[in-house]
């Protein structure tokens, strides 16, 4: 039997909103250690890696490892039926055809059950090596979302250039160009407002706005975002999910023809 309970559905609601633009379906790998999802978007340009540790759940039971293929569009619709304060329980039996979502109101006066059919999926699983990145930028997630949105007006791609002076985001198009520079913050009262740059070597990479604007849908999950970059390898855009796990997006850089 598989059963996982979160005291507040808000986290799971935000996770679904953070992946639904990129993934229409995905396999949820459930084991003793928690729930993991690794899936490429339909165009196979980006990769989503989600990790929810079992110890972050209020209750977690997984008697045997399960791979459950879920329709993300349907799952998003179901999670939208939960109030943020509702308790959410995911339940499935061994060799399941279905998964059940149970939402319980804080007063326990409302109990809603939604059953979703699982799908059979053949998925490529990619091995992501541990990488030392040339630049790691930590910055407020809302600021990153704002920059992606603002620069998307000027072109289809955003160039991120990171040096010891700071990080520069720029976009160029037929009607003009724009660039936004962020310096490392010297001192901040609140850690979540800090811009922190860990640079070994300067990096300049260009990424498609379309994907960056999908990644920033994870902004409600965490006040800070971590961008890890090295020349000629995919960007890693990471958001912590409270004390329970993280979501990482990998995006292939644009390269000169």
């Amino acid at each position: 039997m598989f059963e996982a309970r979160l005291a507040q559905s808000a986290i799971l609601k935000k996770v679904l909103e953070a992946v639904k633009d990129l993934l229409s379906e995905a396999t949820f790998e459930c084991s003793d250690s928690g729930i993991m999802v690794q899936a490429m978007d339909n165009a196979h340009v980006s990769l989503v890696s989600l990790n929810l540790r079992s110890d972050g759940f209020d209750k977690f039971r997984c008697d045997r490892n399960l791979s459950m293929g879920m329709n993300i569009t349907t799952m998003t619709k179901i999670l939208r039926c939960a109030s943020s304060e509702d308790t959410v329980t995911l339940r499935a039996w061994d060799n399941p055809d279905n998964i059940i979502f149970i939402f319980e109101s804080p007063s326990k006066e409302k109990l809603a059950e939604y059953e979703m059919k699982l799908i059979n999926m053949d998925q490529e699983h990619l091995g992501i090596p541990e990488t030392m990145y040339s630049c790691v930028v930590k910055m407020p997630s809302a600021e990153f979302a704002r920059i992606c949105k603002d620069l998307s007006q000027f072109g289809e791609a955003i160039t991120i250039a990171c040096s010891k002076e700071g990080v520069k985001f720029s976009a160029a198009g037929d009607y003009g160009n724009a660039n936004i520079k962020l310096a490392q913050t010297a001192e901040v009262d609140k850690e979540e407002e800090a811009v922190c740059i860990d640079m070994q070597e300067p990096v300049k990479l260009t990424f498609a706005c379309r994907y960056l604007n999908s990644f920033v849908k994870a902004t409600p999950l965490c006040a800070q975002v971590k961008l890890s970059m090295s020349a000629d390898v995919p960007l890693v855009c990471e958001y912590s999910i409270g004390e329970i796990g993280h979501i990482r997006y990998y995006l292939a850089p644009k390269i000169d023809d």
Binding site: M40, A43, H44, V45, E124, Y250, L251, A252, K254, D256
Partner: peptide
């Protein structure tokens, strides 16, 4: 111009 390789060309298929 710029182009883009698929993400799987950067990571090995398990």
């Amino acid at each position: 111009g710029k182009s883009q390789k698929g993400i799987s060309s950067y990571f090995k298929v398990k």
